[in-house]
Amino acid sequence: MADSNILEIIDLRTHFFTDEGVVKAVDGVNLTVPEGESVGLVGESGSGKSMTAFSILRLIPDPPGKIVSGQILLRGQDLLKLPERQMRSIRGKKISMIFQEPSTSMNPSFTIGSQIEEAIRFHQEGRASDVREKALAVLRSVKIPDPRRILSQYPHELSGGMLQRVMIAIAISCEPDLLICDEPTTALDVSTQAQIITLLNELRSQRKTSFLFITHDLGVLSWICTYAAVMYAGKIVEYADIRSLIRTPRHPYTRALIGASPRLDCDRDALSSIPGTVPNLIEPPAGCRFHPRCGRAETICSSQTPSLKEEERGHWVACFTERNGDGAENA
């Protein structure tokens, strides 16, 4: 994929051991985030996007969840082998995360200031006045008006958009190398969404932070990401740069996903939908997990699992029909 990768996930498997059986939420995910780039991770609810993100930070609720196997390399260092103590110095310092619901992601009992300062103090030495200055500086960098007043306010006094800015401020307060955004705009209204995305884009270009951006919104995805991976039922089915993914999707699932999103530039009366539902991850369908819902499924699809192959330069697809249809067997 790219020459220098900040994050490389190799064959990650995160399973949940429940009374009903083993839920294979993440099942053999391979994903790379090139240095300074923004990689999107798209998929339906329950496809394992968020669990991939939590696996990176090793925040899977255990029990019942467990990272069964795989490697997560942050600049070549395997995070899954680190002791918890060292992992704590990675969280927030090297890798930060922004969550979906800004209003529930802040502790209601403390002021905004004390929560920003807590994050800063945990990773950096410094006097109280320095820490406060730093908190003010990060609030300014996320373009919050009147940051000095905000510092002494409580989360319930701020709007969702403002809180998401504060969350971003906390996330970037220790200048992380990688920022994981777990649907950061889903809970916001559209105009606020646009502001947050613009802000994130600016931060990325200014600070050279790499992004792993989880979303189910293809519009948001194309706006902020340079690469994108499509996830279905715990597996990555397609990975490419954002242009070719949107323009020439190769995997039937990606095509269906794009077909299901509204577009301004072409005239369609009805949006298509994907028949069926996301498979049960305790007993996923054999072979390709999408085959029961796939219009192009062949016999091989129900018996063998396609692996991710580079069909074109930089365009990876896990699909048999695509390979046969385009005669790209050599990849």
Partner: peptide
């Protein structure tokens, strides 16, 4: 199980300090 506990964990704060500084006041 609240999001802000997870968020605190994601910013690298240790479990024991979360217990006293984030859970206890609530």
């Amino acid at each position: 199980e609240k999001d802000y506990i997870l968020a605190a964990r994601a910013s690298g704060i240790s479990r024991s300090s979360i217990m006293f500084t984030h859970v206890l006041p609530n």
